[in-house]
Design a protein around this nucleic acid. Structure first.
Lengths: 144, 144
DNA sequence: CAGTATCCCATCCGATACTG
DNA sequence: CAGTATCGGATGGGATACTG
């Protein structure tokens, strides 16, 4: 529909653009933590293990700019700031759940991660090679 | 089991590690495209718009190393190589669907993307500031 | 408490050119 | 067709130090 040949759901431009909003080392972990409820800055820093001040702040600012999280500053004497998912952010909770459950199952040894086989035989199942040779000569498709 | 207190689903380490497998500019778009069925190299390059030879190959190699996609090489005269999701890769199809549908809805103007308000008033709703001042003196929490 | 300010390095990615 | 080789530039993230 919509004029353009194959675009909306074919894994291209628009999707890529939207995906950029959650790309980055810490965005997903942060969003996932926030999905459980509002959290203060330092609490977040503790919960999302390994994140540094700089990284956390940068990620939060970007998520805020993209309308996924909301920042609420309470003018109290010991400064208090809470971060929470915005309505738009809550829209991707299903995705987060799916992703996290997948990540969890894979972390639990469901799959051997990053295990390169030393001598992986990959020259393959030779599916009806019978006609090979009858095809164009070896370089016919290489125009020049 | 595994000893550790609070870890599996709290948005930290394990999940972060697993997420790394799909992190990168092109991994998700590629996986999404592959979810629709096996595709040849150059076809993939056309479908995932904007990707370059180098980026595509690199992403594919990593996805392969992480066991998410399978590469099948057919020993024919014009070389033919097909990429497809592995069983493990198919395990994250639900996540892909959720993600893509979210990305799609947001691309369709559901949310104003990356729109910074010029003078956003963010010093906030002052929730019962009545006790401010009665709290510890301004710098009491700053130990030194 | 909740950040900023810098500096620096690693990685990612794009562009270009070449090959089995 | 399906890649590899190389290089340069942008970005993201880490470490450290300091502040309203």
């Amino acid at each position: 529909m919509e004029t353009e040949a194959g675009s909306l759901y074919d894994g291209s431009c628009e999707v890529v653009a939207a995906l950029d909003a959650i790309a980055g080392r810490w965005k997903l972990p942060i969003l996932w933590r926030l999905a459980a409820g509002p959290v203060r800055y330092n609490e977040l820093k503790r919960l999302v293990r390994g994140v540094t001040n700089t990284a956390l702040t940068r990620a939060l600012r970007e998520l805020e700019a993209d309308g996924l999280v909301e920042r609420t500053e309470y003018p109290e004497v010991p400064p208090r700031v809470e971060y929470a998912l915005s309505p738009a952010g809550r829209a991707l909770e299903p995705s987060l759940e799916a992703l996290v459950s997948w990540a969890g199952s894979r972390a639990r040894g469901g799959v051997e991660v990053r295990r390169l086989a030393p001598d992986d035989d990959r020259t393959a199942p030779a599916p009806s090679t019978s006609d090979a040779g009858s095809r164009r000569t070896a370089t016919s498709w290489r125009s020049r």
